[in-house]
Design a protein around this nucleic acid. Structure first.
Lengths: 330, 330
DNA sequence: AAATTATATACAAACGATTGTAATTTTAGA
DNA sequence: TCTAAAATTACAATCGTTTGTATATAATTT
């Protein structure tokens, strides 16, 4: 069965295509009788307008592109979920592509987005990519880009991100509140600005408000890495009493170590992390964490996108607020 | 800056549109000189063909639709990741929409897929939906549909799913191997065929090969539910020594209870689950599980889709094999 | 040099919609 | 009854491609 088109409807009803088109969208020029006839037939023939024809004619796609390193990721999938939800409400669909942290994939995907004339693009830089040229090109071609999570330093781009500095501060506050004496603070890839922001703010706050607390700073690149780091450091004579995990990934490794070593939380060890809450809630006691929601970030990104499209190019950076969620681990 | 089109290139080069079009795709009719000129200009003007125009002309979209209850889900996101990966390799992009387990959203999304003339659709039924009418309509409109996870009973549809019966059997085998005396087996929503399949096969195998082992069967609807069930039953005088969790969700609840009650795994309690492996690897010892990978299912679904598109409509059901992954919990 | 064949490029229709304008019909005013 | 205004409906161009066919130029054959 071939797809129903305006032409087909027009032929069957002995009307012109334009009349049929207008009848279907309830245009005042068309008489009620005709509208009824047209709509009835459209219904019965299961007419759905061809989005490509419309987009070609209208020069606007009603599709947003989303570029993430990976979909199967606790953070990105909640971000995507939020963007999808808002997009649907606003009549947009989503085209989602993964870069797998690979610059070549990233470029290919950007090409696909351009070929599909997406109305806008939500992009997370693949860690390797450093040629922002293509993104400038997107802007030249009037495709607004909202960066999230891993964003370019260049301030000519629009970005949304977590309030990473606040996260660091809140974590530090609660560690001080716990009266920690010796802290192990594990951060992620030091090349990423997210790690830098969280670490700097945390470090400064600790220095200023608890100068006597000893804090050991280490970077981990994976869960396993974090697990090893924890184990190695815990084996030493002077044990730490509190551990801070910058990401879920790190928390996972640390918790495996804690379970393996049968350390009692929070009596023997305080644990605090930065997370959207899913992983912390897997443990007993629930791990206390500073909440940074990918879902919230998605909502914010969508707002930015809409603002961008309406008011031209309001270049700036917005952040999602962070708050402390009390579990039982501190 | 306006988008570069064939027309624009043609004007600048004083050539016809058709020549430009053919030059860009290296058509033998066009001379080497002309090709070089055209391609150079296209490059410098950053030409990208308009996908809508092509799709309109070619009557084929190079886009697959994916309908899931939710993107932010350990299982669905790995399924999507696999489908996306394969699709990209084959020159397809993905349009992903969420139903949120809501029949109305599902219908709207299907409409969007039809309007976008997707080349095919990967669909997971929203639990509420029972009007398969629309899906028959998709087929009438020559949009092949491959169902996954929550699939219709109707055998006229193409489906892929886990080998749920094998999962149940493998789990039972390993419980018998552990020499379990008293087992708590927690299953999911009894209305879903996935629960029924896993339970029936598990139950039959236990009956046949370990008739003396006492097994208590309970259904849980959420993590919290599972946690409560475990706690309530563990409090009784005769404690069970092994727990089987049909899903990650259930495992999460059970593990919270186990941690809270400070039960030693595997000494005091054997734990086995069905999972893709992410959640089991969060604990120490790592939970032993029967592997059913959403990623694998995605790959299989893609294969089915390609087969469907090429050979017409090979209606059948394929399953992803299951295997036991030894952790340290049994 | 004329006729034939290659080679290179141009023309034009089509895909399915939207929309400004023209044409037709109906209604109303004089 | 004739005409102007209002209400309907039809025509045609357009969006950016692809592709069958026609045309013009160059190269080859006789």
């Amino acid at each position: 069965m071939t797809n129903t088109t305006l032409k087909l409807l027009a032929q069957q009803l002995q009307l012109s295509i334009s009349t049929v088109s207008r009848a279907l969208k309830d245009h005042p020029d068309i008489s009620a009788k005709t509208k009824a006839k047209v709509q009835a037939l459209a219904q019965s023939l299961d007419y759905e307008p061809n989005a490509y024809a419309i987009q070609l004619r209208m020069q606007s796609s009603k599709i947003f592109g989303v570029l993430v390193p990976a979909i199967a990721n606790l953070f990105y999938d909640s971000f995507i979920a939020a963007v999808e939800e808002e997009s649907r409400k606003n009549g947009y669909a989503l085209m989602i592509l993964q870069s797998n942290h690979n610059a070549e994939n990233e470029l290919n995907n950007l090409k696909i987005f351009r070929q599909n004339r997406v109305s806008g693009l939500f992009a997370c830089l693949s860690a390797s990519a450093e040629n922002l040229e293509v993104y400038h090109k997107m802007n030249e071609h009037e495709i607004p880009v909202v960066f999230f999570d891993i964003v370019p330093k260049d301030n000519s781009f629009t970005k949304v991100r977590m309030a990473d500095e606040r996260c660091g501060v809140i974590a530090a506050e609660n560690i001080i509140k716990r009266n920690a004496k010796k802290v192990l603070a594990i951060f992620g890839d030091p090349a990423l600005s997210i790690s830098q922001n969280r670490k700097t703010s945390f470090q400064n706050f600790m220095k200023d408000f608890a100068p006597k607390t000893s804090v050991q700073y280490i970077n981990a690149n994976s869960s396993n890495d974090a697990e090893e780091i924890f184990k190695n450091n815990y084996n030493k004579t002077v044990k730490f009493d509190t551990v801070f995990c910058m990401t879920d990934e790190i928390l996972i490794g640390v918790m495996k170590a804690i379970q393996a070593l049968q350390i009692k939380v929070p009596a023997e060890m305080g644990v605090i992390s930065i997370s959207n809450g899913f992983i912390p809630n897997l443990y007993y006691p629930v791990i206390s964490y500073v909440e940074t929601s990918g879902f919230q970030l998605g909502k914010l990104a969508f707002l930015q996108m809409m603002a961008n499209m309406q008011t031209g190019k309001p270049v700036n950076e917005l952040t999602v607020e962070a708050k402390f969620i009390e579990g039982g681990s501190m």
